[in-house]
Design a protein around this nucleic acid. Structure first.
Lengths: 247, 247
DNA sequence: TTTTTTTGCGTATTTTATACACATATATTT
DNA sequence: AAATATATGTGTATAAAATACGCAAAAAAA
């Protein structure tokens, strides 16, 4: 039960006029942050977006975008605000996946973080002025991260693997149109396993969520491949019936 | 980035000697609680454990066990502590599933709650002195709950449905030995669908995680059914190979 | 005894997953 | 221009799994 007894209700004081303004509570409160694990895909490898910390603690270390929650925003709104402030990425559909609450995960004070993840196209973050400190890393290039962000990354990867079996995440990670082999590479990169090309083609075609497009990209391959586009309508149909991708 | 700039680091003041002791921060902090959604099973219906609030707000309303997090405990430790304090349930393996952060979910102040769920045998909570305010409700008996706990319950149920497809939750919900029909009823109650009895038997037997026991319960049925026990060893084998229950 | 209900154990059929063969298009090489 | 290499498109035969359903045994109730 959330039982502040009445006599225990804390006083919240806002002396924000003075220089040593303080917010005071009868009982100690942790600070709360939202972090964003942003996944991208370059056609070969899964990537994550990191920013280099400019201040202590962990100054110079790489970490996930994120920051302290305001009192008038939800954790998700906070995640999206911080993401835009630090990387320039706007209107990203982030999804909460875990709250990290270890007592000593931040050396400054007690801080719990509510971690979110999202999938974006690499092109969306390129050439952004605000993003000079933000940088994509492939998973095997990721250095040792600030705070407990190594742990957070492991948990985010597991979440991504779960998700790809229930929803076609390629929607968000691939360009508008793509080759079947690119889609297969994406699934292989996320799940860490290899598929038979022909069976993958058959399974995807039978699902019916892909639409062929006329456009033919001249890429480095020998035979000009069919380009596809995700069919969001068909996918919505499938999802309403409750389907699951098996791999 | 979690960027308190250095000049902004808040002062944490503990005047706990005085009667109006206050914990003060340079920036406002939300309060943080942990709540527990405890599921049980009576052989027919899924049940949840609720406690009746003795104080405002929502005095008299039913709510999930839970309470404010201490500075020296994780969210999970908090959940387990509050669960024991309020229901007498000890050593329950709770699992975090979502943080609820709506700005106005608590009328007292900004409170975010980290919700956990667990599965227990009904017998474990019976006849506990501390639990006089705690009561089991079947899902269709659950009244309108305090705070945003109606929403929390819906999300917890979805989590339970997901989980039962990856792990044999019967381990925790059923008595030590049980009939196959009880196991089937449990799955049907959680997932809300009916199975063919014979196919369910075949599938479960083929999985190999059930062991027959000699004990024969004389129940109200016509033919004396075989009693089973979960084989944790076989299950661990299966799990290490990565399996999934399909329904 | 007969009937009713729940249980145990099976099998035929359909559906899905898997392994693998072969032809085609195009850049590169000869 | 012909041969080669490589990625592509489209199949099919087989194995595995999911599904539907038949039938008899055990025990309480009629």
């Amino acid at each position: 039960m959330e039982n502040y007894s009445l006599e225990k209700v804390q006083q919240i004081t806002d002396n924000s006029q003075g220089s040593n303004s303080q917010y005071c509570y009868k009982y100690p409160h942790p600070a709360v942050t939202s972090d964003c694990i942003i996944f991208g895909y370059d056609g070969i490898n899964i990537k994550v977006l990191l920013i280099q910390r400019g201040i202590e603690p962990y100054k110079g270390s790489w970490a996930f975008p994120g920051g302290f929650m305001n009192m008038n925003e939800t954790a998700e709104q906070c995640a999206r605000r911080e993401l835009e402030e630090e990387t320039g990425l706007k209107n990203v559909a982030v999804e909460q996946f875990y709250a990290f609450t270890d007592v000593n995960r931040d050396p400054r004070e007690r801080v719990i973080t509510i971690a979110h993840y999202a999938l974006v196209r690499l092109s969306e973050v390129k050439g952004n002025d605000d993003a000079d400190a933000a940088q994509w890393f492939t998973l095997d290039e990721v250095p040792s991260l600030a705070f407990d962000h190594d742990l957070i990354l492991r948990k985010a990867m597991n979440k991504l693997k779960e998700r790809i079996c229930f929803e076609p995440v390629g929607f968000e990670l691939l360009p508008e149109t793509f080759k079947m082999s690119e889609l297969q590479n994406l699934y292989e990169a996320i799940l860490g396993i290899k598929f038979d090309r022909r069976n993958f083609y058959n399974k995807m075609n039978k699902l019916g969520i892909l639409t062929e497009v006329e456009e033919r990209a001249k890429d480095a391959s020998r035979r000009t491949p069919i380009m596809y586009r995700f069919n969001a309508e068909k996918y919505a149909e499938l999802k309403s019936k409750g389907f699951r991708l098996e791999f």
